[in-house]
Simulated scan of single mutants.
Amino acid sequence: MHTVNIHEAKTRLSRLVDEAAKGESFIIAKAGKPLVKVTPLDAPAGPDQRRLGFLAGRIAVPDDFDSMGAAAIEQMFGGEA
């Protein structure tokens, strides 16, 4: 991943966006300090990216999940169990 200064990014924006769309992310810096990272929308955000369904088949949600602990919660808020 390469870094470009803000002036260069203004000058070469179309080319840089085309490169990013192809998967070549880059960083825009101002006075040598990194400000933003430009990545394509459908590119993974990194190794820590969470994906829906990654535990499918590994866990089970009980049928009474929505009512679990209802009595204890009701007591906490001044109700009677």
Rank of each mutant, 00 (worst) to 15 (best):
M1P: 11
H2D: 12
H2R: 08
T3R: 08
T3L: 09
T3Y: 05
T3P: 08
V4K: 04
N5R: 05
I6M: 07
I6N: 08
I6T: 09
H7W: 01
H7L: 12
H7Q: 13
E8D: 12
K10I: 04
T11W: 04
T11H: 08
R12F: 02
R12N: 15
R12M: 14
R12T: 09
R12W: 02
L13F: 08
L13M: 13
S14V: 06
R15E: 15
L16K: 05
L16F: 09
V17H: 02
D18M: 04
D18F: 02
E19T: 10
E19M: 12
A20T: 08
A21R: 11
A21V: 10
A21F: 06
A21I: 07
K22C: 05
K22I: 03
K22Q: 11
K22F: 04
K22G: 11
G23D: 04
G23S: 05
E24G: 03
E24F: 06
S25Q: 13
F26I: 03
I28E: 03
I28V: 15
I28A: 07
I28R: 03
I28D: 03
A29H: 03
K30H: 11
K30D: 15
K30F: 11
A31T: 03
A31N: 14
K33C: 00
K33W: 00
K33D: 07
P34D: 06
P34W: 02
P34I: 07
L35N: 00
L35M: 13
V36E: 01
V36M: 07
V38P: 09
V38A: 11
T39A: 06
P40I: 02
P40D: 15
L41T: 12
D42P: 01
D42A: 07
P44M: 13
P44W: 04
A45F: 00
A45R: 14
A45S: 08
A45T: 08
G46I: 05
G46P: 07
P47I: 15
P47F: 11
P47H: 13
D48C: 04
Q49R: 09
Q49V: 09
R50Y: 07
R51C: 07
R51G: 09
R51P: 00
R51I: 14
L52E: 10
G53S: 02
G53A: 02
F54S: 15
F54C: 06
L55I: 06
L55D: 04
L55N: 10
L55W: 10
L55Q: 06
A56L: 12
A56K: 14
A56C: 05
A56M: 10
A56N: 15
A56T: 15
G57A: 08
R58C: 00
R58Y: 04
I59M: 15
I59V: 15
V61Y: 03
P62C: 00
D64E: 14
F65W: 14
F65H: 14
F65L: 07
F65N: 11
D66Y: 06
D66K: 13
S67I: 05
S67C: 09
M68S: 09
M68H: 10
G69D: 05
A70M: 12
A71I: 03
A71W: 00
A72I: 06
E74S: 01
Q75M: 09
M76Q: 06
M76K: 10
G78A: 09
G78P: 05
G79T: 00
G79K: 06
E80G: 09
E80D: 12
A81T: 08
A81R: 05
